[in-house]
């Protein structure tokens, strides 16, 4: 499944402009240190963190998209930085636990 297909399937709101790509799995964490240690290339990263440094962290480990869960408001500078580097930031009102349930029902596995 690609990021664009995921958006259609889940009704997620894309906040940044991005290059579409294949999703290889899911990684869920609010700790950049965990993401740097554990996320795999092409993973979808689910988090409630919205500060600007999620974009370089996402890029460093090459995630396919960031999903901001729990309806957290994303600062404009974060969105601008993601757009600049074509990294997808998607938005959902669902809490992390519920969001994961939906991702799993679409057949996505852990990273």
């Amino acid at each position: 499944m690609t990021v664009k297909e995921l958006i259609e399937n889940m009704g997620l709101k894309p906040l940044s402009q991005f290059d579409d790509r294949e999703i290889t799995g899911v990684f869920v964490s609010d700790m950049l240190s965990d993401v740097m240690a554990g996320a795999q290339s092409g993973n979808l990263w689910v988090t409630v963190q919205t500060h600007k440094s999620i974009v370089p962290a996402a890029n460093l480990v090459d995630v396919s998209a960031i999903i901001i869960s729990s309806g957290k408001e994303v600062p404009r500078e974060t969105i601008e930085l993601a757009t600049k580097h074509n990294i997808a930031i998607l938005w959902s009102e669902l809490p992390t636990f519920e969001l994961v349930g939906k991702l799993y029902s679409l057949g996505l596995a852990t990273g």
Partner: peptide, 17 residues
């Protein structure tokens, strides 16, 4: 931008909700 976790232990709640 440092790629560090800040505010994990913060007592400040996010302002939007």
């Amino acid at each position: 931008e440092f790629i560090h976790d800040v505010g994990m232990l913060s007592l400040e709640p996010p302002k939007e909700r």
